[in-house]
Amino acid sequence: MASQTQKTPVYFNKKVTYLNKRRFISAHMPFTTASWRILAHQTKGILITNVARSGLVTGTVFGNPLRGWYDKHSGKIVFLQFVKGNPSTGGNQPFYQGQLQKSLADNSFTITGSLMPVGGDTSAGLATCQWSADAIILL
């Protein structure tokens, strides 16, 4: 005889546990200018973002200028880092994409995502790598 109650699938329980441990939610950026501690490709540095109402993002990352876009509805940010290099090759211009998240525990902001070098002497063999940034100053 079949049971009348349906059990929650095991994979769903694991997903809920993971989300509870992570304690982050997608967020929109309630600030226009921010300084971040960034860790990208095993390198630590500073990321400075300025977000216009239109979603245009400008600033610097590792001391190099950046330009990109931020979508306030999804919390997604994408930008290109303009690395100084040989103008004939275009230099390596890393392309960053990330998701803004807000911690439920302490209301701090974090961006996590991936980056991929493009242009210059890059090749199809180069894989994407992970990056993250923690907010230092929000204005």
Score class of each variant (00 low, 15 high):
G55H: 08
R22K: 11
S54A: 13
V61A: 14
A52Q: 09
K84T: 03
Y70V: 00
Y96F: 15
Y96L: 11
T49I: 04
D106P: 10
A133P: 05
A52K: 14
S54F: 03
A34C: 02
G85M: 08
A2W: 00
M116Y: 13
A124R: 13
S132V: 06
S123A: 09
Q101D: 06
L47T: 07
I38R: 07
D71V: 04
F12K: 15
Y96V: 03
K76F: 08
Q93Y: 07
W131H: 08
T128W: 11
K14G: 00
P65D: 11
T8C: 02
L39V: 12
I25Q: 07
S132K: 14
D121Q: 12
Q101H: 01
M29D: 01
M29E: 05
K72S: 09
S103T: 13
T5C: 02
Q4W: 00
T5W: 01
C129N: 05
N13E: 10
N86F: 01
T60F: 06
W36S: 03
S54C: 06
H28T: 15
T17K: 14
T110Q: 14
N50E: 14
Q130P: 00
A27F: 03
T32V: 06
G90K: 01
I77P: 01
K14V: 04
L47Y: 12
S54I: 04
Q42Y: 09
A127G: 10
N92H: 01
Q101E: 15
C129W: 11
L126F: 10
L19A: 13
I111P: 00
Q6C: 05
S3D: 13
K21Y: 11
G90W: 06
T60P: 01
T17F: 11
K21E: 14
Y18Q: 14
I137E: 15
V61N: 03
N107T: 14
T43A: 08
M1N: 07
K15E: 09
I77S: 02
G85S: 15
V16N: 10
